[in-house]
Simulated scan of single mutants.
Amino acid sequence: MAEMKTYTPPKVWTQDADSGGRFASINRPVAGPTSEKDLPVGKHPFQLYSLATPNGVKVTVLFEELLAAGHTGAEYDAWIINIMEGDQFTSGFVSANPNSKIPALMDHSGDKPQRVFESASIMLHLAEKFGAFIPETPSDRTEMLSWLFWQMGSAPYLGGGFGHFYAYAPEKWQYPIDRFTMEAKRQLDVLDRHLAENEWMAGSYSIADMAIWSWYGQLVLGRLYDAAEFLDVTSYKNVLRWAETIDARPAVKRGRMVNRAFGDDLSMQLRERHDASDFQTKTQDKIEAAEG
């Protein structure tokens, strides 16, 4: 590990060219749009604007689970938002999500379009609209909401904390890596202890499982930050059992593919999704084979 450099904060912080490291081109200390561009709108009631990061995967997994459960009204168009190119700062996207973070949803199923932003809010909106993947009993519903919001509060330590300093920071610094590794492992232990006595996070399979799996399940399956060995994920046996069970669900596999534009396996990339048949005909391997 490189030795930590001493930093004396100025009286008033200002952004410089090095602020943000790998993400300097898209990090900025102000909100609002940087360009004028409308969002595309497809044929379905739900228009999703996203990318297959863990927060994006939460929502596409839920959409695919709803469709697999027979909720045909949950058909959706999924448009890719390239965050490394600043698509999240266009006027159209900022109108859908003033916080300029994926995912954002426009629901056209009612009398007027309804924007929904923040992944947990989108999941609750859809689960309540279709009466699916949300517990019916007050006790289980409360437990589910507690775990859903546990994920929302905890994942920034995993992503912006551990993931950033372990995988993305321009230099390896021991203090922040140690600090956030301890917290990531503590969170995994919280899950492991709960799942030792429960098959699912709250009663039956729910949006809490989907949301938590998108971060912690994929982490223990070796898909985030190339950190599985470093975090000794095999020691969290209950989390692994739960993660593998969810990963085997066909709807989850489809959800992982939507808005995916990275990775070596082009057959797992469905950059836009407008119909169920797209999974068979429009994955990136088939598109490139047709073009070649």
Score class of each variant (00 low, 15 high):
His164Trp: 07
Ala132Cys: 09
Ser235Tyr: 03
Met4Ser: 13
Pro54Cys: 05
Ala228Pro: 00
Thr90Phe: 11
Val61Asp: 00
Thr142Gly: 11
Glu171Phe: 05
Leu67Tyr: 01
Leu145Pro: 06
Arg256Lys: 07
Asp247Pro: 01
Pro250Ser: 06
Tyr168Trp: 12
Asp16Gly: 13
Ile207Met: 06
Trp150Cys: 06
Asp264Glu: 15
Thr181Trp: 06
Asp178His: 10
Gly263Val: 05
Ile207Arg: 07
Phe63Gly: 01
Asn97Thr: 08
Phe130Ala: 09
Asn198Tyr: 08
Leu188Gly: 04
Ser235Ile: 04
Ala184Ser: 15
Ser139Gln: 08
Phe262Arg: 13
Leu219Pro: 05
His108Ile: 00
Phe133Val: 07
Gly70Lys: 02
Ser121Phe: 03
Leu219Met: 12
Ala196Pro: 02
Val258Asp: 04
Trp147Ile: 10
Ala96Gly: 08
Gly160His: 09
Lys172Cys: 09
Trp150Thr: 06
Asp209Trp: 01
Met106His: 02
Ile177Lys: 09
Val59Phe: 01
Asp192Asn: 15
Pro10Lys: 11
Gly292Tyr: 03
Gly203Arg: 07
Arg260Tyr: 00
Asp38Glu: 15
Val116Asn: 04
Phe23Ser: 13
Ala127Asn: 09
Trp215Asp: 04
Ala167Asp: 12
Val57Arg: 07
Val59Tyr: 01
Asn55Lys: 08
Asp226Gln: 13
Glu272Thr: 15
Arg249Lys: 10
Arg271Ile: 14
Lys5Ile: 06
Leu105Tyr: 04
Val116Gly: 05
Ser154Met: 12
Asn27Met: 15
Ala211Met: 07
Phe279Gly: 10
Gly56Trp: 03
Gln269Asn: 12
Arg179Asn: 10
Ala2Tyr: 00
Glu183Lys: 15
Lys253Cys: 01
Val252His: 00
Gly42Asp: 05
Met123Arg: 09
Lys11Cys: 00
Asn97Arg: 07
Leu188Gln: 05
Met182Ala: 15
Thr181Asp: 06
Pro250Gly: 02
Gln88Ala: 08
Gln269Arg: 14
Pro98Cys: 05
Pro9Leu: 09
Met182Arg: 15
Glu75Val: 11
Gln187Cys: 08
Asn259Met: 04
Leu240Gly: 01
Val239Ile: 13
Ile102Lys: 03
Ala120Ser: 13
Asp265Val: 14
Thr281Ile: 03
Pro45Gln: 12
Trp200Ala: 09
Ala227Lys: 11
Thr8Ala: 04
Gln218Pro: 01
Ala78Gln: 03
Met123Glu: 10
Pro40Lys: 09
Lys253Tyr: 00
Ala120Tyr: 02
Asp264Asn: 15
Pro29Lys: 13
Arg249Met: 02
Val239His: 04
Ser19Tyr: 11
Ile80Cys: 03
Ile246Gly: 04
Val220Asn: 05
Leu191Phe: 07
Asn55Pro: 14
Asp16Tyr: 05
Gln151Arg: 04
Thr60Asn: 03
Arg115Gln: 10
Asp178Thr: 14
Asp226Lys: 15
Ser35Arg: 12
Arg254Asp: 02
Arg115Pro: 06
Ser204Pro: 00
Leu51Gln: 12
Ile246Lys: 02
Asp232Asn: 15
Val30Arg: 08
Glu272Val: 14
Ile102Asn: 05
Trp173Val: 15
Gly73Lys: 01
Tyr76Met: 07
Glu65Ser: 07
Ser91Trp: 11
Gly263Thr: 10
Leu62Trp: 00
Val220Gln: 06
Arg115Ala: 06
Trp13Cys: 05
Met144Lys: 03
Arg186Asp: 09
Tyr76Thr: 09
Phe279Tyr: 13
Met268Glu: 14
Leu266Ile: 08
Met201Asn: 04
Ser154Trp: 01
